[in-house]
Design a protein around this nucleic acid. Structure first.
Lengths: 217, 217
DNA sequence: GTCTATAGCAGGATAGAC
DNA sequence: GTCTATCCTGCTATAGAC
């Protein structure tokens, strides 16, 4: 049932190209002409396979984004399950790495963050997917693994704000790359992403009130 | 030279409504028909006064956003000049308050953050204005007032990352309100904004490595 | 399933009356 | 300066050949 050619079926190519373009520009700034051209298929293909443009957008989240979010969570979980009681430092580092240096290509991670940031900034029908299938489970999981390493008196709401703050940094350093590059004067390359992970871990650990002094540099 | 009516000149009304709509939806999702309707003037007015839609967008930044950014900076500066050598805590608090509880209405602050976040996520011709007239000067000023209260060994690049992280939180808690509300289960009301300022100050101070233990709650 | 052709409409911009 | 009427482009979506 495989196509003989290099690429997959048109439907898959459309999903791939649509995700790239939606992440870069957002829903309204992308045209179906653009997508079908990039996917090397016909203008009518989107309506045939997905009904309309909006449903294609949703399908990008269902078929691409949500599974990737799950892979990211699993990757974080796997990094941590090696240790039987992971330190807050290990937890934060696993999270930051997943978004900045993780198992995927930098382009893929950037795409993922951009789509997420777009939905959080201006929710569409896809927002429920983002909240229920990714943010919710991730926050819950993080709370569980962080809890044992934190001061007992830290309330749930405070822990949630702390986790959101870490997420804020992770997303920000992805979606605001141009601004970050301009302000720091540094290329957004491998070394810089590594530096960012280091920074986020340190800043967040201190932010959480469990910093290791600061002698590891 | 004042118009007898409640509102200002059409040109001013267009700028006002355009800023609201651009902040809410972004450039491409807003139509000139929408703007002129909201501004209660004619469809042709935008082209007459601004030449075209894109130039109106730029003019919103030049005539509204940049002056407000300056007012915010001045407000931060004024909060700090009362003290002759402001503590890092005072600096961060002034910054967080400026964006979350500051001198303007909540709607105005939200609008300001949204426009800023949009340009940082996907720069247009207005990005240079944002970077040169607001972010740059703000970062520079913050660095100057923070520096005396920080450990000497903190390098410039590290300080910059720290300030960007604070900015990340401030912007995030503004532009991702829907997500924040969903995750925390709290209304985005006066009390919650107050709580957010408190959180950002604490998290950032610790993040900066100069936290006051944590006995102030 | 994939294509071409086109319907039908909304967008930004403009001309010209007042 | 402000209006109405209209042009023209580019969009999504569909019909129908292959």
């Amino acid at each position: 049932m495989r196509k003989k050619n290099k690429n997959e079926f048109p439907k898959e190519r459309i999903l791939n190209e649509a995700e790239v373009l939606f992440a870069q520009k957002g829903f309204h700034e992308v045209t179906v002409r653009e997508i079908t051209k990039a996917a090397k298929c016909n203008l009518a293909a989107i309506n045939y396979h997905f009904g309309n443009k909006e449903n294609l957008y949703l399908e990008v989240f269902r078929a691409r984004w949500v599974p990737r979010a799950r892979r990211i969570r699993e990757h974080v979980g796997k990094s941590l399950s090696a240790q039987d009681s992971p330190s807050p430092q290990a937890v934060i580092k696993a999270l930051a790495q997943a978004f900045l240096e993780g198992p995927m290509s930098d382009e893929e991670r950037k795409r993922h963050s951009q789509l997420m940031a777009r939905e959080m900034a201006r929710p569409t029908a896809a927002f429920d997917l983002v909240a229920e299938q990714a943010m919710g489970p991730l926050m819950k999981e993080l709370a569980e693994v962080l809890r044992p390493g934190l001061p007992d008196k830290m309330g749930e709401d405070r822990l949630m704000l702390n986790m959101l703050s870490v997420l804020a940094m992770v997303l920000y350093f992805n979606f605001a790359r141009v601004a970050v590059t301009r302000m720091t004067g540094r290329e957004y390359d491998h070394a810089f992403r590594r530096r960012l992970v280091e920074h986020i871990v340190e800043f967040s650990l201190n932010g959480l009130g469990v910093g290791e002094k600061e002698g590891d540099r």
